[in-house]
Structures are given as C-alpha cells and as structure tokens.
Nucleic acid binder design. Sequence first.
DNA 1: AATGAATGAGTCTTCATTCAT
DNA 2: GATGAATGAAGACTCATTCAT
Lengths: 194, 194, 194, 194
Amino acid sequence: MELNDKERLILDAAAEVFAEKGFFKATVSEIANEAGVAKGTIYFYFENKRDLFKSLIVSKFESLHQRINEGEQKGEDFESQIKEIIFRKLSFFAEEEDLAKSIIYDFAGMDEDFKLEMGRLRNRHRDKISKVIQKAIEDGILKDISAEDAVIALLGIIHAFGFENYLNSEKKDPSVVEVVDIIYDLFMQGVHNK
Amino acid sequence: MELNDKERLILDAAAEVFAEKGFFKATVSEIANEAGVAKGTIYFYFENKRDLFKSLIVSKFESLHQRINEGEQKGEDFESQIKEIIFRKLSFFAEEEDLAKSIIYDFAGMDEDFKLEMGRLRNRHRDKISKVIQKAIEDGILKDISAEDAVIALLGIIHAFGFENYLNSEKKDPSVVEVVDIIYDLFMQGVHNK
Amino acid sequence: MELNDKERLILDAAAEVFAEKGFFKATVSEIANEAGVAKGTIYFYFENKRDLFKSLIVSKFESLHQRINEGEQKGEDFESQIKEIIFRKLSFFAEEEDLAKSIIYDFAGMDEDFKLEMGRLRNRHRDKISKVIQKAIEDGILKDISAEDAVIALLGIIHAFGFENYLNSEKKDPSVVEVVDIIYDLFMQGVHNK
Amino acid sequence: MELNDKERLILDAAAEVFAEKGFFKATVSEIANEAGVAKGTIYFYFENKRDLFKSLIVSKFESLHQRINEGEQKGEDFESQIKEIIFRKLSFFAEEEDLAKSIIYDFAGMDEDFKLEMGRLRNRHRDKISKVIQKAIEDGILKDISAEDAVIALLGIIHAFGFENYLNSEKKDPSVVEVVDIIYDLFMQGVHNK
DNA sequence: AATGAATGAGTCTTCATTCAT
DNA sequence: GATGAATGAAGACTCATTCAT
C-alpha cells in the first residue's frame, strides 16, 4: 500500500483531528483545513470519512507492526523479546495517546464491516505475540497454560498502563522503561508473595 | 439520587439504544420510541442527550458498585474477595456487553466536563479495589508492590477478558466462573514456570 | 391520502418551484422558503426531495382524474364525453403549464422505482380513456380499430397542443374551447379531404 | 460545423451517458471515461457540460434532418412523403429511444438561452414538415385546415407512438413499418366510422 | 493537445432541542 | 407532566470547472 505525499499529508492531519475529537466529532472540513487542502481533495484520495478513518488506523497498525518486528529481531531470549514488545507498544501509546484509544476502542456506532476489518487487524496483531508466548511455553519458560489467555492478559495489562496517562495525567513521570519492567514482572510473577 | 418510574423507563431504553449504536449514532428519537414516551418527555427528565448518557453511566456504575459491595461482605479472605470482584465485574460485562464498552472507553468526542466526571467515577471504583489490595499487601499476602499498579494490572486483565466476547464471539462457552479462576491465577502467579 | 394543511402548503410551494426549475435545479431550501417553513419541516412531512416530487405528481394526477371523472358524468354521448376529456386536460395543462411537463416527461435521471410508479399512474389514466373509446367502437361510432392505438393518438394530439404554449408562447389567444374542437375534429375525421 | 474525430468520440460517449442518466445525473467524468479521454479534454472541445449537451442535440437534430431530407427525395407523392417522414422519425426514436426523450423534453432546469436554441431547432424541423402539408392542402389532397395545427397533430401522434416503447416496453413487436401505416391512417382518416 | 489533481461552491439531509398546546 | 410539530445549525459529499505540467 504505497502512500503518496498528499495521502500522507491528509492522513497526518486526520490523525491529529481524530485523536482530538474522535471519529464522530471530527469533521472532514477540519481535517482538510489542518492538512491545508480543499475538502474535495480528501474525497479524491479517500472514499469517505469512514474510509479515511480506516486507512488511518490501518496505517497506524502497520507502523506498530513494523516497530514490533524490528524489536523481534533485536531480542533473542524471551525476556528481551517480550520487553521489546511491551516497550514498543507503550512508546506507541505514548506518542499517539488519544489516537491509540480510537484505534482500539472507538468502534461504537461504526458499521459491521468496519468492525470486522478491525477485528482482523487485531487478530493479526495478537497472533504475532501469541507465537512468542507459545514458543516460550514449549520451551518450558512459561507454565503450560493457554497461550491465548496469556496474550489476552498481557495485552490487557499493557493497554491498562498505556491508557493510564489518559484519564489521570498527573504521574507521567515514570519513564517508559520503568513501566516496561513493572509490566513484565506483573505478567511473569504475578502479585503473590511466595 | 432517587429515580422515579419514568426516569427509570427512559434510562432503560437509553441503555439499549446507546449499547447498540454508541453515543453519537444513537438518536434521542429512537430512545424516546424505545421508551414509549414522546421526545419532549426526555427533555423534561434530562437536560440533554449528553446528560442522559451521563446519568445512564452513573447509574450503571452505581449498580456495579453495589454488586461489588455485596460481594465484599460475602468473602472474608482475600482470595474470595478478589474472586468476587472479578466475578461480579465479568458478570456485569457479560450482561451489559456493549454498554460496558461505551461506559469505559466511548469518551472520544465528549466534552472535558464529561471526561472529568467519568474519571471521578473510575477512580472511586479503583479506590475500592485498591483498598482490598493494599490490605493484602500489609497482611503480607501480596508482594510489597505499588497497590496502584496492581489494581491497574488486575483491571486491565479483567477488562481484556471481559471484552473478549465482543470481537470474537465464538468461544462464549467457558463459564464466567472458569474465567474467574484463570484471571485470578494469572494475576496472582503470573505466567512464569517456577 | 389525507393531506393536512402543512402538507398542502409545502406541496403548493413545491409545485411552484419544481415547475419553474425542474426537479434537479429546484432546491429544498427554496421550496421551504417559498412555503414559509424551515427546511427541516419538509423532512418531517416528506421522506426526501424525491418523495416530495412524487407526492406532488400523485396529487396532481389525482386532481386531473377528479376533473375527468366530473366531466364523465356531465357528458352523455361520446362526443361530449371526449370533448370534456380534451377540455379538462387542456385546462389542466393551461393552468399547470410547466409542471405538466415535469409530470409527463421529466423522468430522466430518476430511479427505476420512480419511473415504475409513474408508469402506473399513466396507465391508470389511459385505461380510463381507453374504456370510453372501447365502448364507442362497440357502439359502431368509431371504426373497428385498436382502442389502445386510438388512445395513444388522442393523447399524443392533446399533449402536443397542450405543450404548444410552452415553447412558443406567442399565440395563447385561441380559447381552450376552440382548440378542443380542433383536436376533436382532427382525431375524428383526420386531415384527408374526402 | 465540422467535427473532428475527438469531438465525434466525445459526442458519442455523451449520447450514451446522457441517454442513460439524463442531463443532470450524467457527469462529465463518466462521459470522459466512456470516451476514453481525460476530463480536461472535454473542456478543450466544449465550453462546458451544457454546451456539450447542446452540441449533442444539435448534431442529433441534424442527423434527423438529413434522414428526412433523404426521404423527401425518394417519395414523390404526398402519401409516400409523409410515410417516409413518419418512418424516419420512428426509426430515429427506435434507435435513440432514451436520448430522443432528452432531446425533446428534458429542458426543465435549463437556462433560457438553451430553451430558445431548442425552440429554433424545433421550429426548423416543423417548418420542413409544414411545407409538405401546406402543399398538400393547396393541392386539395388535404382539407383546408391550418397547416400548423396539422403538423402539431401529426408530430404529436408520432411522438406518442415513438415513446410508447419507453414506459411499457412489452409490445415492441409491431414492426416500424406497421406502425407507420397505423399512424398515417389515424392522421389521415381519423377514427370516426363513416 | 491532453492530462488529471485540485478546488470549493452548493445541496441534501439529520437531529438535538424548543415550546405552544 | 406530556406531547410532537417545528426549527435551523451543522456536516458529508458531489462534481463542474480550472490550470500547471
């Protein structure tokens, strides 16, 4: 999916506006304004507002995947691999804060097609992590549990920490790296005092 | 906050419609229809659409709190207390599936006031669980970690499992009780193979 | 199909605007203006612009039918019956000039549904006249020809004269009654010099 | 008015699209597509959409005139001359069905200039036939009636039969030649049973 | 001559909200 | 208290037309 300059320009503006206002409150006019193009230009590159939103999400997902892929190659052992994933997802959330929320949860009111498409992206994302977990289970590093469940839990924890900044933005101080360790420990060891 | 019959009637209709359509796609007309009252009547009991949505969420949060409070009294030890919380939250999600998502994440495009109010409700909810965790830490049941972080992780896991049904509704079979155990174990012991 | 006052008001305004501008050039705003109501009001009474146009046409057709029915009762013999029909159609054209054209030919660009509906109205109209002709054939007043063809010819002549005013409106002088006789004679006797 | 290849190409595409969609629903883009040229090219050869439509109609009228002229030379006596006219007009309708309607009646919403121009074309067409009729009157073949009126009637009948196919396309079976005879007889002898 | 990306005025349509009854 | 007709601001989307290349 090659994006030319104008498309990139519009998508960047869309990211900003959708992040600030959410899909329904965002207006195509405002996005056009932000991008410095005419309204009609947006409709030259995208079918409609919904298609623009979808394209945006797809592109963000792709950039997230790419980050994770890069991390995968870096880390050899399980710990560094998982920590890379956590780190890169958190960084992504940190950079895209509001948009990330839209990407993950802002589907209320969208049509079924859209939800299915999102489900697909989501699953692709999950499968990637699932494989890392599965291998660790086979290697005896992790307990013999459902890899699916482990992924759900891991992503749940990551998202929860990732979204923390959102609603009570007081304690943005802990560095991403610190949070990575916290998450990794919680995920691996749990909270029980053995 | 006393609710008379008409208010209850409207709120129930609103729950249904908002759950199905989300805040922005839902129309006041449809809610009025669903409730069997005239549009104007809604404006007699609620200031506007946003206020209706807020009232709905507040009322749902209250019902969730109540459930959790009831559970608290039942379980004496930490395990049963936490499991009660997990169970009741999952049940809540199961019953209110779509609405729950709106309640937790559908804030994109809402005004700042609304978000703050939601933040407050959320914190109240968190504090309740936080206390249980804090006590367990003091009692030496849990490691000496940040209770805040533990709560974030626990809620993250619960939400992640609670929302599972949403996007891929194939495996609705595992009973809530089973999932409660899975979550409890993941939260307590983590996934590491010791 | 009972029409309340507001509907009537809007339909009258629509008649004026559609007649002047045609379906595509007419704007809902202008119709609303003309009717002295807000744009939204139109959408309260009619589904959309197309529905408004259709309703208008149906109502005009009905008024035409009613005129013709009244005429039917007046004239007993064939000649007066046909002349009544011609007279009433011509009067209708005279009064509704531009609109009549829309009603009969302005279907380019309309959806198939619309065209079918119009075809139905048209046929109903034709059948009425067809019966008069058929009876006259059986009574030996008219030659033993296809009643269908006779109706096509008769309507063709009437419309041709009815629309005359449209493009070259110079000679509006001949009274409708005179034209009725001209049409009747052309239809009955043809132009051949026997 | 010489037409080069590109103009011809565009005009043919325009004929197709205008016939299918009508003036307002047809888009310049679609015509360009159909013609296999870029949108801009159309504006090199035609001033604007309206001018393109006008050019199309003029060209069609010219082709109709040419047909009729050819017929004129073939038929020597009145009967064959009129029948040729009827035949050629019907053939034209048969070939250009939808477009013919646009050509004759799709003027709603067009500007005054356009209507005048069309009126001129129409009159030129009429005058041609008018002369044939006028001569027949002088020769005593036809009654001593207004040639104008006779032309109106004749064209009305032809159009009515020509458009028949349009709305109820069931009985397309009668050959054009048969219909020519029917029309000629109706026009000449009328329907009265003498 | 030809292209097609870019424009932006113009329209339909929706829907939260009001208020006279 | 309840109604629902009426409002009008707001927004998505279309498409004829232009012009730099």
